[in-house]
């Protein structure tokens, strides 16, 4: 009985569980306890890991990987905008939104993978600098939440049933949340460069 009720709200409960976890991490002081212990890892990334050594030794390699990071974010943003603007009814009105949601997702996942891999390289090159940046940690948190949101909530929900059966406001909410999330990831990423 309880199991069947819970299974109906699995996604909602998952979201609340993640939010509760974040609140608990903050309230119980886990973040303050873990944070100092991460500094040696970030220092090692920059000074000893081969990613950090390449990034700090060869400026042109670092700049090229930065550019690939930007390009992957551009592709990621393009797929997010195309899908979400369709869900909001702004563009692609003559194409079923289901087609956009499924058709761009593979491209999104590849772009996300490349963005994460190149992002790790970029962070390794300035490891002990980004460690002290609040904006870097905000980006990491939003990136984690955004990836989970896309892969475990938005995409499964939008591919589970025809969009005509979903409340239009729910679809709009999903699209706006997605656009705001990825805009925040991109904007905070840009701000790391200025900090």
């Amino acid at each position: 009985m309880l199991g069947s009720i819970l299974s109906q709200y699995a996604r909602t409960l998952s979201v609340f569980a993640v939010l509760l976890l974040i609140v608990l991490i903050e309230a119980l002081g886990v973040r303050e306890a873990v944070y100092p212990g991460l500094l040696p890892f970030f220092t090692w990334m920059r000074e000893s890991s081969w990613l950090g050594v390449i990034g700090t030794t060869y400026g042109s390699v670092y700049a090229t990987v930065e550019a690939v990071h930007l390009l992957s974010m551009a592709v990621l943003g393009g797929t997010v905008l195309a899908t979400d603007l369709r869900l909001l009814g702004v563009i692609f009105k003559d194409i079923p939104s289901e087609t956009l949601v499924t058709g761009t997702h593979k491209c999104f996942r590849w772009a996300l993978l490349v963005a994460i891999l190149t992002g790790i390289f970029c962070a390794a090159g300035v490891g002990d600098k980004v460690y002290y940046m609040q904006v870097f940690w905000i980006k990491m948190l939003v990136l984690l939440l955004g990836s989970c949101y896309m892969l475990f909530i938005k995409q499964p929900f939008l591919t589970s049933r025809p969009h005509a059966e979903i409340n239009p406001w729910m679809i709009r909410l999903l699209a706006i949340t997605s656009m705001l999330t990825w805009f925040t990831v991109a904007a905070t990423g840009r701000w790391i460069g200025f900090s």
Binding site: V75, L81, A82, L100
Partner: peptide, 23 residues
Amino acid sequence: VLTLMVSIGSLFIIDFRMLGLVM
């Protein structure tokens, strides 16, 4: 830089479609 997501993001989707990689 952020406008890259709109301009090059859209352009690359068109290019990817021509190559049969999306939709």
